[in-house]
């Protein structure tokens, strides 16, 4: 347990990328101090010096939440194609695969949390900022359908800049597709818990990120529909300090709990236990 980080106010307020480059030691963008990556890793990807939250890769996120060796991935081979022949999209996809070491921007599968069987998906900021194209939409939709058939809860970790422009209207329609699948899953009495992480915006915010039975968020995570710069430009005024931050969104009534990263697993266990095992 790292007590140094424990007393610091969680700090998730950097704009834009907060990735960990491939290196042993990096400079934290927030406090400008040199920190070793292994220390960051041990500290739930939070800067041990200043409490800055780094982006967590989807695969790592799942390991952090699931019981050891309980996770088995589904739909792992699905990869995006440049359906519209959009300029430079092929190159962007290759770069994203390289950078994320994943085939797509979401990982789905089945596992256990606190012994409770559940389906889980985690989006990946390292893959085109978690943007949602046809494959991301399809994988999440399939997961909800799979979970609905087997009466399993779904845990979803969101991070996204929104719909993936390079797939045009096909990506916009993924919002409808996933939302409809969430509804079907819900109508059968199944639980869906969302964990909003920095940032969850655009078309993902305006669909399955906002449709959980219980909505958790990491401290300081940006959660909103329109990008802050767009709003600033439209209104021609500075935005309030806490605008679109998880704490403020909670005050506005759209988040149940803001939970520090190292407390998420515990909260999920409690929630899952409260929803399992008691049959009238």
């Amino acid at each position: 347990m790292n007590f140094k980080g424990f007393f610091l106010k969680a700090n998730n307020e950097l704009e834009g990328e907060n990735f960990i480059p491939r290196a042993r030691r990096i400079t934290c963008k927030k406090c400008q101090k040199k920190v070793s990556v292994s220390q960051i890793r041990k500290n739930s990807f939070i800067c041990p010096e200043c409490g800055n939250y780094f982006s967590v890769r989807s695969r790592r996120r799942i390991l952090m939440l699931c019981d050891r060796r309980s996770f088995s991935e589904m739909y792992a081979d699905m990869e995006s194609e440049n359906i519209l022949g959009f300029p430079e999209y092929d190159e962007k996809l290759s770069a994203a695969r390289e950078k994320s070491r994943e085939k797509e921007g979401v990982i789905c599968g089945e596992g256990r949390i606190g012994g409770v069987r559940c389906c889980i998906f985690a989006m990946d900021a390292y893959f085109m900022m978690g943007s949602m194209g046809a494959v991301v939409g399809e994988k999440i939709t399939r997961l909800f359908e799979y979970a609905a058939e087997r009466s399993l809860p779904v845990i979803g970790v969101t991070v996204s800049g929104g719909a993936r422009m390079q797939e045009g209207m096909i990506s916009l329609f993924q919002m409808s597709k996933v939302s409809a699948a969430v509804k079907r899953h819900s109508d059968k009495g199944n639980l869906y818990v969302v964990i909003l992480t920095n940032p969850t915006t655009g078309g993902v915010d305006a669909s399955f990120a906002m449709l959980g039975d219980i909505t958790l968020a990491e401290p300081g995570a940006r959660v909103g529909f329109a990008g802050p710069r767009v709003i600033e430009k439209t209104l021609n005024q500075a935005l309030p300090k806490n605008f679109q931050r998880a704490e403020r969104v909670l005050e506005c009534g759209f988040i149940d709990r803001v939970v520090p990263r190292d407390g998420l697993r515990h909260d999920l266990e409690r929630i899952l236990k409260l929803h399992a095992g008691y049959k009238r």
Binding site: D205, A206, A209, M210, V223, G224, V230
Partner: peptide, 16 residues
């Protein structure tokens, strides 16, 4: 796109 639109839950309204 506005402060109130966001704080009244634009994303949630569309999702709903």
């Amino acid at each position: 796109c506005g402060i109130e639109a966001e704080e009244h839950g634009q994303g949630r309204a569309i999702a709903d």
